[in-house]
């Protein structure tokens, strides 16, 4: 029996040493900041995490730790609870959904820990700072660019994100408001492409079949605009029209690169607030002045400036 115990304890001890090794190497920073991300598998959120990491690396005082809820609100509640257990000094959270996260965020806030909420809001006022961008404004910027570029006349196809999701609604509304006064701009076809490149390709094939002339495709994100481009290219009609996307993500697969490559005519930045979140967190922790609600501005990304967005690390 004692031998059982010894074998067992040896196993426990060796595993424990293995698990706790990284702990010994962690440097002690002044502030521990928990970043609760709702879904790491979205490219836009990866860009947000990367921007936050890059910004945090510039400051000695701050240690940033991440959690990923993989689009599960229940998991995100547990993630925030784990941060509480770790006694973080500040919480940055991009909530998966407002309602289910409100209670746990309030718990953090009521415990005297500042909370920076990103992108999607929570209910009530139990947070220190909100940073986000306005999708209606972005849709409007796209609509205005389109009206100007087409000289107020043309046939447009609109490829929408997931129906019932707020960004889809806002990106569509802003765009339609902006083009409403141009009588000669006509939306000849609209379809739900669910934010996906392959779905957009299929949907745009239908649009191509139904319309022998299309001047412009407005897609609610870059992957859908690229999907439409692929469909048009397969039909030999990609020169006939312009492709407009939203997001302007960095990287080889991102929308900014697609503008450089000439696939998209333009894309509009949906700012990811990662950098601003860390900046604001530091201001709060150092008791400096900060704005309670920060709305980030979009940017028009064309061939001239796309390189800055495709590779933000190089941008000065």
């Amino acid at each position: 029996m004692i031998k059982h115990l010894i074998t067992y304890l040896t196993c426990v001890a060796s595993l424990a040493v293995f698990v706790s090794l990284p702990a010994a190497q962690e440097p002690k920073r002044k502030f521990l900041v928990g970043f609760s991300q709702c879904n790491n598998s979205e490219p836009w959120r990866q860009a947000m995490n990367a921007a936050a990491k890059t910004e945090a690396a510039k400051h000695k005082d701050i240690e940033l730790v991440f959690s990923d809820a993989a689009q599960d609100s229940a998991k995100q509640v547990a993630d925030v609870e784990n941060f509480l257990t770790q006694k973080i000094d500040l919480l940055i959270i991009s909530p998966n959904e407002a309602k289910p996260l409100t209670k746990v965020v309030k718990k953090v806030f009521d415990a005297g820990i500042p909370v920076v909420v990103l992108d999607r809001s929570i209910e009530g006022e139990s947070y220190t700072c909100f940073i986000g961008a306005d999708n209606t404004e972005i849709g409007k910027a796209a609509g205005e660019w389109i009206a100007k570029t087409l000289n107020g006349k043309g046939k447009i196809v609109e490829l929408k994100g997931l129906m019932g999701s707020t960004p889809t609604h806002h990106r569509s509304k802003g765009f339609r408001d902006a083009i409403a006064k141009f009588k000669d701009i006509e939306i000849v076809h609209e379809a739900e492409a669910k934010w996906l490149r392959d779905e957009a390709r299929t949907q745009f094939e239908h649009a191509l079949a139904a319309n022998n002339k299309i001047d412009l495709v407005y897609a609610h994100n870059d992957p859908m605009a690229i999907g439409a481009y692929l469909a048009a290219k397969a039909a030999g009609r990609e020169k006939e029209m312009l492709f407009v996307g939203i997001d302007a993500l960095p990287g080889k697969d991102g929308g900014a690169q697609a503008v450089i490559d000439g696939k998209l005519a333009v894309t509009f930045l949906y700012p990811n607030c990662g950098k601003e979140a860390v900046e604001t967190a530091l201001k709060i922790l150092n008791k400096e002045k900060f704005e309670r609600k920060i709305q980030l501005q979009t940017a028009t990304v064309t061939k001239e400036n796309a390189a800055d967005f495709a590779n933000p690390e190089k941008k000065k």
Binding site: Y8, C11, V12, A13, L15, A16, V19, S20, A23, L32, Q86, K87
Partner: peptide, 16 residues
């Protein structure tokens, strides 16, 4: 018990 013990030992200390 094994996982619990590992978790106990591997737990980071309270910062305060």
């Amino acid at each position: 018990a094994l996982v619990f013990s590992i978790a106990w030992i591997a737990s980071p200390p309270d910062r305060k």
